[in-house]
Simulated scan of single mutants.
Amino acid sequence: MKTAYIASSWFNPAQVAMLDTACTKLQANPTLDWDNSFMPKNHTYKDWTLSTHPEMLADPEWQLATFNADVAGINASDLVVAIYDPALANSDPGVLWELGYAYGCHKPVVLVLPDTLTRDLNLMPAMGATVVLPLAKLADFNFARLYYQPFSGKVY
């Protein structure tokens, strides 16, 4: 079984819904070691959240600790699963940075897109991912046998 760093956003209800759906599917996947995978949302510095500590985004200590923990999580994982919705209201450059960092470290990246993608995808995540999947296929995807399956659609 493979361990994964789960790159995702959880800043609005649509992002949370996509992440929750992805997590349910990933937990059910027998080829992914969910218990030893790393999801930044579950490893926040001092267990701070925006609702309990709205000042954290301006706190340099929190910023550095969060950045370093996320980089360490990527480094310690076998691969990165990037849950990403390119719709402007849901797109998060942090997820794209994590995807790019993983690519630079020669880690496989599984880019998970909404089931009904209605817009073009930027060239860099489209071609930088090892595998591009719709959300619906996460529970059955074989993480033990990754081979290049790039995005097949229009890019910009």
Rank of each mutant, 00 (worst) to 15 (best):
S77N: 06
S91G: 08
G104D: 10
E98V: 07
A58W: 11
T116I: 09
Y5D: 04
A89F: 07
N42R: 13
L57K: 09
S9I: 05
G104W: 04
F151W: 03
F67H: 14
P134C: 10
N142G: 09
L121K: 05
H53Y: 10
D70M: 09
I6R: 00
A72G: 09
G94I: 05
D140T: 15
L26K: 02
A76N: 15
T21C: 11
D35A: 15
Q149D: 13
A89L: 13
D33Y: 04
I83H: 02
T118S: 14
Y148V: 01
L32E: 00
M127Q: 11
L111W: 00
A82T: 03
F151S: 02
H53W: 06
T116Y: 09
G128L: 04
L113D: 02
L99W: 01
L79K: 00
R119Y: 04
V155T: 14
T21N: 07
L88M: 14
D92N: 14
A28P: 06
Y84T: 02
F141R: 01
K2R: 14
Q27V: 11
S8F: 00
V112C: 07
W62S: 06
E55I: 07
Y156L: 12
L64P: 00
Q15L: 07
S51H: 12
Q15A: 14
Y45V: 15
T3F: 04
P150R: 06
L123H: 08
F38G: 02
K41D: 13
